[in-house]
Amino acid sequence: MSQDTIKHPGLNLGCAHGGDHDAAERVMFGFWLFLMSDAVLFGMVFSTYVASLSATAGGPGPRDLYNIRSVFIETLLLLASSFTFGMASLALKYKHGETRLIGWLTVTLALGVAFLGFESHDFVTMFAKGGAPTRSGFLSAFFDLVPLHGLHVTGGCIWLVCLVGQIARYGLDTRVKLGIMRLALFWHFLDIVWIAIFSVVYLAGLA
């Protein structure tokens, strides 16, 4: 593979896709910029969280609220979904057919939804233990950071459903391909943000 065939971050379609590969360059670059901007957004809520660690105002702290088992399951779910999305990208690139592509995307969606299920269950448990965001500055900061990631995952799931709808409607045309490739970046990016969340919020909080 020579240097100039890699035009953008993420899995490149390659020359076999002709014009779609060229069209990807600028669109993927623009989306990459958006992700960088989003990274700063997350950076800001992380700094809020870290600066508010001691602001529990007598309310429950990390040790009272976090559940390492459920976070571990969430981490595995998200990691697995990153892998299945990778398989979907391969199915797209090497033209394994729409059925296999939709199959991998559906598995990814299921994993994403399962992640969201576990996460909301976590939040409900926290509320039950008196860990509502209105309780303290610390909890406000927590509920800024982790649900923001959850909101992104929700957005990713909706986007995924829309893309499957577009495949059904138009087949694998240029815009669908570019959509899947951008969602792939988004999905892997969210997994990276989750690494920071489970490390900084949960593991460091329970350490």
């Binding site: 602001a55 105002a57 500055g137 406000s140 800024d144």
Partner: peptide, 22 residues
């Protein structure tokens, strides 16, 4: 802006005087 809005609309404590807001 989002944090100030959450403070104002939903009673969070990012920037309030009480409950660990700063």
């Amino acid at each position: 802006m989002a944090q100030l809005a959450l403070d104002r609309y939903l009673g969070f404590h990012y920037f309030t005087n009480a409950h660990g807001g700063n």
